[in-house]
């Protein structure tokens, strides 16, 4: 995979998730950050830091991005969410506009 097609997402604890740009753009917020003509740092370095989102949640979110891409292509599968993550995940989803 080319480097230009990836994005680095950094959690509150500093863990780095490198995922497809396409997958990250499932989130409307991340999409705006990466495509804004304003020349923001995020666009330049393809790095987004989320000081409000913890590592397990961000991991779940990345899983969701891929699942969502797959789901959009027509395959129907279940996306399992552990009950203890639900609340935080919902807050993150609201922020990321997914």
């Amino acid at each position: 995979m080319k480097k230009e097609d990836t994005v680095k997402l950094i959690s509150a604890e500093g863990f780095e998730f490198i995922i497809d740009k396409n997958a990250a753009m499932v989130s409307q917020t991340i999409r705006n950050m990466l495509t804004s003509p304003g020349g923001f740092a995020e666009t330049e370095h393809r790095e987004v830091t989320f000081p409000e989102i913890s590592t397990p949640i961000l991991e779940k979110i990345c899983q969701y991005f891929y699942w969502s891409l797959q789901y959009a292509s027509g395959k129907e599968t279940e996306f399992y969410i552990e009950p203890e993550l639900t609340l935080e995940l919902m807050m993150a989803a609201n922020y990321l506009h997914t």
Binding site: T29, N32, M33, S36, P37, G38, F40, Y95, H97
Partner: peptide, 16 residues
Amino acid sequence: NKALQMIRDILMYMDR
């Protein structure tokens, strides 16, 4: 226009 877009992106969450 460019400035306006930047401002909008910065204030995106508020906008929403």
